[in-house]
């Protein structure tokens, strides 16, 4: 019996926490459980949610990527600059996404081929890319003159905002990739034991570069979508985003040492973060105080995870 309960907790623990939280806020926070608020909530987590999909791969393979926040800002700026210069929305979007991918490839090569620690490598690119964002924009927000571009972030389909559809699409695609493809399984194997994976014939450097390239591409996509929502590329945006994304993943039970992680976990982590922020806003908690519960929740989540992993003694 205890074993059954334990198994239930192992597989659905954070999901139960989220359901409890959701029901609780629905009952106690006025205006929370309404269609309009749900739209707002989902839109507010879209950027974090999209990037968390590939951050899951980075963490599962035993690395992480601190440069995503800067990539979001830089690609947004670049997209705006390219659209204004060329008059083509498509060209701007492609340029933004590809620039993100390029940063990812650089990260991947630095980490997998040159053997630089992921913390250092992405800390470096984080600053370099942030700097590029300022250079491209000359330090000020770059407004986009083509209204077509605004559609990406501000339209909706069937009552659900387009960025949320993009997030849902990312959840589905990357969930599938993690569980059903050799690439996804190899990612978890590399994080679980890099040397064993290598000796079993898995191409470790190639997989890592792919993981970081994907992370860059998706961060670039998120940057473009965010710029579209704001109708401008802003070099100052998304500061600290990388830590929010990693927090969401950890909330969802992804191990920082690699080898453990599920997409459902990440989705739950993203939703828990979004729900708490949303509830605090509805309750008019002053901004300064909102930081405290955010950090507190992360601590509690990691603690729960540790309890779960305690040996069966």
């Amino acid at each position: 019996m205890t074993r059954v309960l334990k198994h239930l907790w192992d597989s659905t623990g954070m999901l139960l926490v989220f359901v409890g939280l959701f029901v609780g806020t629905s009952v106690f926070v006025p205006n929370f459980f309404s269609w309009v608020n749900m739209q707002g909530l989902s839109l507010s987590v879209a950027t974090v949610g999209i990037i968390a999909c590939t951050m899951l791969f980075c963490l599962a393979s035993g690395d992480f990527d601190l440069s995503v926040g800067s990539v979001v800002a830089m690609t947004g700026v670049l997209t705006a600059v390219v659209i204004n210069a060329s008059g083509s929305v498509l060209l701007g979007v492609v340029a933004g996404v590809c620039a993100g991918g390029l940063v990812g490839v650089v990260n991947g090569i630095a980490i997998a081929q040159l053997g630089i620690n992921a913390l250092i490598a992405t800390l470096a690119t984080m600053q370099i890319v942030r700097g590029l964002g300022f250079i491209f924009s000359k330090g000020v927000a770059v407004g986009v003159s083509q209204p077509n571009f605004y559609l990406l972030g501000n339209s909706s389909l069937g009552g659900i905002p387009t960025p949320v559809w993009i997030m849902i699409g990312c959840f589905l695609v990357f969930g599938l990739v993690l569980n059903k493809t050799t690439f996804g399984r190899n990612t978890l194997a590399i994080g679980g034991n890099r040397e064993a994976a290598r000796l079993a014939g898995i191409a470790v450097p190639r997989s890592k570069i792919t993981i970081f390239a994907l992370q860059g591409l998706i961060a670039g996509l998120a940057g473009v979508v965010l710029a579209s929502r704001m109708t401008s590329g802003q070099p100052n945006t998304a500061q600290g985003l990388e830590l929010q994304v990693i927090s969401a993943c950890v909330l969802g039970g992804v191990s920082l040492t690699g080898g453990v992680g599920t997409m459902t976990g990440v989705i739950v982590g993203v939703l828990i973060m979004g729900t708490v922020e949303n509830a605090m806003n509805l309750l008019n908690v002053p901004t300064f105080y909102q930081y405290l519960p955010r950090g507190g929740i992360l601590l509690v989540a990691v603690l729960l995870d540790r309890l779960k992993q305690r040996p069966r003694a």
Binding site: L188, A189, G192, N193, E195, A196, A197, L199, S255, G259, V260
Partner: peptide, 9 residues
Amino acid sequence: KAEGLIPTR
């Protein structure tokens, strides 16, 4: 443990 298995999987 170090070279053969992926212990978490």
